Amino acid sequence: KCTICLSMLEDGEDVRRLPCMHLFHQLCVDQWLAMSKKCPICR
Rank of each mutant, 00 (worst) to 15 (best):
V29G: 07
L27M: 13
E10W: 05
Q26F: 04
C5W: 00
M8A: 14
D30F: 05
M21K: 15
R43Q: 15
A34P: 05
Q26V: 09
V15D: 01
C28H: 04
L23N: 07
W32K: 14
C39E: 05
L6C: 14
H25A: 00
A34H: 06
K1V: 04
C2W: 00
Q31C: 03
C28W: 01
D14F: 05
A34E: 09
K38L: 13
K1T: 08
K37F: 05
I41P: 02
H22W: 00
E13H: 05
R16V: 10
P40C: 04
A34N: 08
F24V: 10
G12R: 07
L18R: 03
D30H: 03
H22C: 10
L27Y: 04
T3G: 10
G12F: 05
E10H: 09
H25T: 00
S36F: 10
H25I: 00
R43D: 15
D14E: 10
P19E: 12
C2G: 00
I41Q: 15
C5Q: 00
R17E: 11
L23M: 10
C39F: 02
P40L: 03
C42H: 03
P19D: 04
H25D: 01
F24L: 09
P40G: 03
S36D: 15
C5V: 00
C39N: 05
V29I: 13
C28S: 03
Q31D: 05
H25K: 00
V29Q: 03
L9Y: 03
T3V: 05
L18F: 10
C28P: 01
H25V: 00
R16E: 08
D14R: 11
C28Q: 01
I4F: 12
E13K: 14
Q26R: 13
M35V: 10
I41W: 06
E13R: 12
L27G: 14
E10G: 11
D11R: 07
A34L: 10
Q26N: 12
V15K: 09
H22V: 00
W32S: 11
L9N: 09
W32N: 12
L27K: 15
S7I: 06
W32D: 12
D11Y: 05
S36N: 15
R16K: 15
I4T: 01
M8W: 11
S36K: 12
L23W: 08
L27T: 14
M35Q: 14
H22K: 01
S36H: 11
R16S: 08
L9I: 11
S36C: 08
I4C: 04
P40K: 01
